[in-house]
Simulated assay, not measured.
Amino acid sequence: MTVDAFLAPADALVGLRVASKRALLENLAGRASDRLAIAVDEILPALLRCEDLGSTGVGGGVAMPHARLDAVRRPFGLLARLREPVDFEAVDDQPVDLVFLLLLPAGGESQNLNALACVARRLRDPETAAALRDARDAGALHARVGGRALSQA
Score class of each variant (00 low, 15 high):
Gly61Tyr: 09
Asp87Tyr: 00
His66Ile: 07
Asp87Asn: 15
Asp93Leu: 09
Leu82Ser: 00
Val62Phe: 04
Thr56Asp: 14
Phe76Ala: 12
Phe76Pro: 07
Arg68Ser: 07
Arg83Tyr: 03
Arg49Asp: 09
Leu102Val: 15
Leu101Trp: 11
Asp70Arg: 09
Asp70Ala: 15
Cys50Gly: 09
Val86Leu: 08
Leu82Pro: 06
Ser55Ala: 11
Arg74Lys: 13
Asp92Ser: 12
Asp70Tyr: 02
Ser55Tyr: 12
Pro65Val: 01
Pro95Asn: 13
His66Trp: 12
Val99Lys: 03
Phe100Trp: 14
Val96Asn: 08
Arg68Lys: 15
Val72Ile: 15
Asp87Pro: 05
Arg74Tyr: 03
Val96Thr: 14
Val58Trp: 07
Arg81His: 05
Glu51Phe: 08
Asp93Trp: 00
Val62Asn: 03
His66Tyr: 11
Leu53Tyr: 06
Val96Leu: 13
Val58Thr: 08
Met64Val: 15
Leu98Ser: 12
Gly59Tyr: 09
Val99Asp: 02
Arg68Tyr: 11
Met64Lys: 03
Ala63Thr: 06
Ala80His: 01
Val72Asn: 06
Glu51Met: 08
His66Gly: 04
Leu98Ala: 12
Phe100Thr: 10
Gly57Leu: 10
Val96Tyr: 04
Asp93Gly: 09
Pro85Leu: 01
Ala63Ile: 04
Gly77Arg: 00
Arg74Val: 07
Ser55Pro: 04
Leu78Glu: 00
Arg49Gln: 11
Cys50Trp: 08
Val96Ala: 09
Arg68Trp: 11
Phe76Ser: 02
Glu84Asn: 14
Arg81Pro: 04
Val99Glu: 01
Leu98Asp: 10
Val86Pro: 13
Pro85Ala: 10
Gly57Gln: 09
Asp87Leu: 01
Asp97Gly: 05
Arg73Ala: 10
Ala71Phe: 05
Leu78Phe: 00
Leu102Tyr: 14
Ala71Val: 07
Ala71Asn: 02
Gly61His: 07
Val58Ser: 06
Arg74Thr: 11
Phe88Glu: 03
Arg68Glu: 07
Ala90His: 01
Asp87Trp: 00
Glu51Arg: 10
His66Val: 08
Met64Gln: 14
Gly57Trp: 02
Glu89Val: 10
Gly54His: 07
Val62Cys: 03
Phe76Gln: 06
Arg68Gln: 14
Phe100Asp: 13
Gly59Met: 12
Gly61Val: 12
Cys50Met: 14
Gly54Glu: 11
Arg81Trp: 00
Val99Met: 03
Gly59Phe: 09
Ser55Leu: 12
Val96Arg: 05
Ala90Val: 10
Val99Thr: 11
Pro95Ile: 08
Leu53Val: 07
Ala80Met: 00
Arg68Asp: 01
Leu53Thr: 13
His66Phe: 11
Asp70Lys: 11
Pro85Glu: 01
Asp93Lys: 11
Asp92Cys: 11
Val96Phe: 09
Ser55Asn: 04
Asp93Cys: 10
Asp70Cys: 03
Ala71Lys: 04
Phe100Arg: 08
Val72Ser: 05
Leu69Ser: 08
Arg83Cys: 03
Leu82Tyr: 00
Pro75Ile: 07
Asp97Val: 05
Arg73Phe: 01
Leu101Cys: 12
Pro75His: 04
Leu82His: 02
Phe88Asn: 04
Val72Gly: 07
Leu53Lys: 13
Val96Asp: 06
